[in-house]
Each structure stands twice: as C-alpha cells, then as structure tokens.
Nucleic acid binder design. Structure first.
Lengths: 338, 338
DNA sequence: AGAGACTGCTAAAACGTTTTGGCAGTCTCT
DNA sequence: AGAGACTGCCAAAACGTTTTAGCAGTCTCT
C-alpha cells in the first residue's frame, strides 16, 4: 500500500523518530538530515496516516458544522429560507478547512452527539443557533471549542468566538435607504427572534424607529415560513390603522412572499409598498421588480468561522472570547426605488 | 477520559477480545457472557474509539460528498442554481449517513484528493458531475466506491451506482402538461448539457417534439447563469420566426430569469408565454405568477445515494453497477395555466 | 474408550503514528 | 583537564482497537 513512516526512515537512513520530527518541525535536527528526510518523503510520495495521528494525538483535524435550516422533511410545503446563504456558508467553511488540511463534517440537527464524540471532532461550527441545541445542553462546549455564526441567545455557556454581521447597524442602513427613498412608515416581518440575526435586525429596526419617535411595527411568523403564513403576516400589517409603506424582512423567501401577496392585492411595488430583505439571494435579482437585499458575504462568514475554529483548536488564537465582524453591503434594487 | 475496551473487559471479567466480539457480533460467545458484556458496556457508557478502529480496519466510516454547484467566489453576480435542491441533497445524505454512524465530509471542488486519501474516506458521492472531475482522472474510483447523482457523461471509468430521476420521462410529463394546457410550441433553455440531468431533459424534450413532427428549439447558456445571460437566451427564442409559446428550463433560477425578462417585455405569463422549471424550489411558489416545477425529492436523492454508498463500502450491495431511480412529482402552478 | 468436531474464550500481534527519556559526542567554559 | 551545556539522533512506549491462531474443555459419534 502507501508508504509508511518506516519506509521514509529506511530510505533516508534514519529512525522514524527523526522522520516524525522533520515532518512536524519538532525536535533538533541538523539541516543536512532535514533535507535528506524531506527529499525521501517527497520521492516516496509519503502521506502520514491521519488515523494513526488521530489515535495518538487525540486530535482529528475534523470540524463539525451544523445548520439551523433543517426543515422536517414531512411538511413538503415548508420553505427553506436563505438557502443560497447557507450553501455559501458551507462552501466557505469547507474551503477554509480544506486549505489547512482539515475535514468538514456535516452534522444533521438530529445527530447523536455521542457519535460525534466517537469521531473526536476537534470543534464545531453552529450556524444561526438558538442556544437550545444539544451542543449546549450536553456540556459539549466545555471540552471542545465552539464557534457560532450569530449569537446563541439562550446558550447556558459562553461561546469563545462568534462570527457575525453587524445586523443592528445593517438594519439601520437599510432603513436610512428606505427613508432616503421617501418611505415613511417601514415595518418588519421576521421569523423566530430566538435567533440572534433576527433579533438584531428587529433591534436595529426598533431603535431606528424610536430615534424618530415612531412606533415599531413588527410581525413575527412561525418557522419555517409558508406561503400562507407570509401572506397572513402582510395582511396583518396592512390592516393597521396606520398602514406601513415598506416591509423589511429577515429572509429572501419572506420578501418574495410579501411581494407575491402585494401583487395579489394589486399593491404597487415599489411606490405604495417598498420591499427589502436582510439577506440577499439570487432569486431577489430575478423577480419583478428586483428586490433590494443585503449581501452579508456568506462565503466569508463560513471561511472566517472555520478559520477561527481551527485557530482555537491549535491554540493559536487569543484566549478570551471575541467576535469577528463581517461587513454588509446594501444592494439597492427596484423594489425600494421611488 | 472516556472508558476504553479494557475497562469494559475488566468490568465484565472477560478479555478485550471477547468484548470486541460481542460488540461487533463476531465470533462465538455464549448468551450469558454476551449479556454481561453488553451490560457492562452500557453501564460505562462505552463508545469505541473510531480512530483506533480506523487504524486497524483501514476503514473510516466516512463518506465524502462534492457538489457541482461551486461557483467561483470572484464573480459576485453569478447565480447559484438550484440551491434549495443542493441543500436538501446534503441534508438527506447527512441524515442517512448519521443513522448508520457514518460521517459525511463536505469536499470543495478544489480539494486536494491526496488529502482525502489521507483521511481514508471510504467512498464518495458526486452530485451532478460532468465526468471531468479529479475523482475520475486520478483513478480514485478504482480503489474506493463512488456513487453519483446523475451520470458522469465524460467519465473514463464506470460508476457502480447512479442515483437519478428519470428526467427523460419527466420532461415528457412536463410537455404533456404544457400540451394539455394548450401550449403548442414549447422551447427549452438549459445550462451545461455536459451534466446528465440537463442532457436528459433536453433529450426528453427533443424526443417529445420529434414524436410530433416538431422541431426542437433549445438554447444553451453558460454556467453559472446570470440575469443578463438568461434574458439574452429568452431574446433569442422570441426572435425566431416561429415564436415559442412556452419555455421549459433546467433550473429554478433560469425560470425566474425568464419570467423576469418576460415581464420586462410585457409578455403575458401565462397565456402568451408559459414557464416551467425542471427543478422545483421554494422561490417558484413565491413569485407571481407561481411557476410550475418538478419536485425531484432531493432529500430522498441524497439519502439513497448515501445509503447505496454505505452498502457498497460494506460489501452488502450487489456487485454489478446499477441505477436507483427516484420518482418525480409535477407541481403544476399558475405559470402554465391557461 | 478414543477420535473428531464443536464451543467458549483468550494471548498476542498488528495498525502507523507521536512523544518521552536518554545516550553518545562535541563545544565552551573555568 | 574536567564540568557543564548543548547537539543530533534513537529506542521504546503509548494510543485503542481488530483479528489470527490456538487452547482447553465438552459433546457426539463409532
């Protein structure tokens, strides 16, 4: 089969200890020996067995990643929100991991944590957790590092690194954009505010409104959203005494749903109703009118999360918990023009 | 730390060999001993170290999965097609793997295959490959089983298991639906026909057309699709002498793009132009008019692929290459009504 | 009663690394 | 010249399993 460390040692005329030291940069080795070993390894095409390394170092060079988006397969009419976003986060994380010879393990929501323990995953990335996930309850995070995308609001233990967009500021940015375009009574439709990204957006929105002496108008709908749920939410907004003239949503599917229902009600978009989404997506550029969204650099988000986690695993990172902020870019489109 | 097989052996008063045999169901063990060992293992909460198992069995209980959808991060305006679909395939595969204590490794397109070899992945799932992926060129598939979703059309080596929808039949189904609703000159817009799903759809379409003595009208656009590319494709269709009255697309984003451009050109949809997509998606239900699509059971597709791969790895499966067909459900919506 | 088969169990080797402790030899002081 | 530090290397233990080969003991024949 593939060459082992013993083959390299034999080829270079040294002990396996020396080979190990050369390859890992440990120990004291003369320059000449170093080169000889390196050459032998290269010639043989030697690749250290990850399994043997794992067994002895008790590290696996493996990261787990879990998405919040898991929808129960039973309800065929549920809509997976922000799937463009999630897919890009995954891609970003996978690429970053691969670059440093780590593997990225995709963990379903209902996964058995004991199983993960058996695989001795070095750390985990949770994308948009609520804080009630098994990872937190089981004390998992006491043994191994954890990085989240978004803050786990109900988490019982602190998370060393949080990767996030500044969505409070982002919401304000979006509202300024709406105001610039003459919208005076913006409202919000959100999913589960137990997730920090939704909570932050609502907070940003509410703060902005209160700064101007306006009453925030927020409707929260069940997760996962459905066509009907979204339509009903818009209905509740429009039934108000003071009817909103813009809707800001926390996901692309909510925005599309609102647009759909607005059309059905023959509301002019933009004009009578402005629509925008906090998470951009390809589909927002493909509807008429094109919908304004915020590009949150999902690939970056995934990459930064994975990188931070690997730093933690290797002890490279600073010790204290910190937060990595990824910028947001507003993509103004027709749906919020005047 | 966590208990080892030695702890269990001591607790049950047997050798570690016996424990191993009991837990793996190998060897000859008396019923009484079996129970005693099982109880001891359960009481200690024993979990075999995957790493040690991997080292000695040279199996990793790990599957790699690679998606076709990887878009180069540079071009921010490219559209990831069918992201709902891909995400569900991933979820389905991850769940199936997790149920049998396998791990699912997400492999980016540019991943180093040597690295995968080091992780000793037991097998790989390729989603919508073309056949020119490194997996095929490097002879990877000679050592380890490979399962693809869709046929790798340019593959140099045969693939033991292919999971697929019968998209030739599905295309015909869709065209029958269009014909039932009075559309007489259906056309197609497709992405890269080097992927079998697109090729099959085109084949089904062309066959159906030729059966009726009609000339197939197909426009192929570059991958990944852009808003402009899609609009241009529709333009080319409409410029024809015999102008099509329906467009069938290979992805949800193409359908949305066509709808968008049709609106811009003030074409009535449905009516003047029918639109439908070969892959369903949440967004198709959220636009006006709602767009007809085919639900291809992506979660099932992922699950079946993972299951087939695990069977292959464990030698459970029949030896000869075969094909697993997942049914397709047509979801008729407004965009193809009359 | 002896041969042979079967049963229930175990000792020990193997998998391919990392890491610890140590051993000669050389250099640098006093 | 002798003590001490430093250099370059290595033997061996450890990591936690699976698997092979074999050993008593019991059963079932003739």
């Amino acid at each position: 089969m593939s060459p082992t460390i013993r083959d390299v040692a034999a080829a270079a005329g040294v002990s396996i200890t020396t080979v190990s030291h050369v390859l890992s940069g440990q120990g004291r080795i003369s320059e000449e020996t170093r080169q000889r070993v390196a050459r032998a390894a290269a010639e043989l095409g030697y690749q250290a067995s990850v399994h043997a390394q794992q067994l002895v170092t008790r590290r696996s060079r493996t990261l787990a990643i879990q998405l919040a988006n898991s929808v129960d397969a039973s309800s065929a009419c549920a809509l997976v929100p922000n799937s463009d976003y999630f897919l890009e986060v995954l891609n970003g994380a996978a690429e970053a991991a691969s670059k440093r010879s780590y593997a990225l393990l995709l963990t379903p929501m209902d996964a058995d944590l004991d199983r993960l323990n058996a695989f001795a995953v070095d750390g985990a990335i949770l994308v948009d957790p609520r804080g009630d996930e098994p990872f937190f309850a089981s004390g998992w995070c006491q043994d191994r590092p954890l990085v989240t995308v978004g803050r786990p609001m109900a988490a019982p233990c602190p998370v060393p690194v949080v990767v996030d967009n500044d969505l409070v500021a982002a919401a304000r940015l979006m509202l300024d954009h709406l105001a610039d375009n003459g919208y005076e009574r913006p409202s919000m439709i959100t999913t589960d505010t137990a997730r920090s990204y939704a909570a932050d957006l609502v907070a940003g929105y509410s703060g902005w409104m209160e700064d101007r002496g306006l009453e925030p108008v927020v409707v929260e709908i069940d997760e996962p959203p459905t066509t009907e749920g979204t339509a009903a939410a818009l209905g509740r907004l429009l039934d108000r005494q003071v009817c909103p003239d813009a809707v800001f949503t926390t996901s692309e599917n909510l925005a599309l749903g609102v647009l759909h229902e607005a059309r059905r009600r023959r509301l002019e978009v933009p004009g009578v109703l402005g629509i925008c989404s906090a998470v951009d997506s390809g589909s927002l550029r493909l509807v008429s009118p094109q919908v304004t969204g915020m590009f949150v650099h999902p690939r970056d988000v995934g990459g930064r999360a994975a990188t931070a986690l690997m730093d933690l695993v290797e002890g490279v990172a600073g010790e204290q918990p910190h937060r990595i902020e990824v910028p947001v870019r507003l993509n103004p489109r027709e749906s919020t023009a005047r």
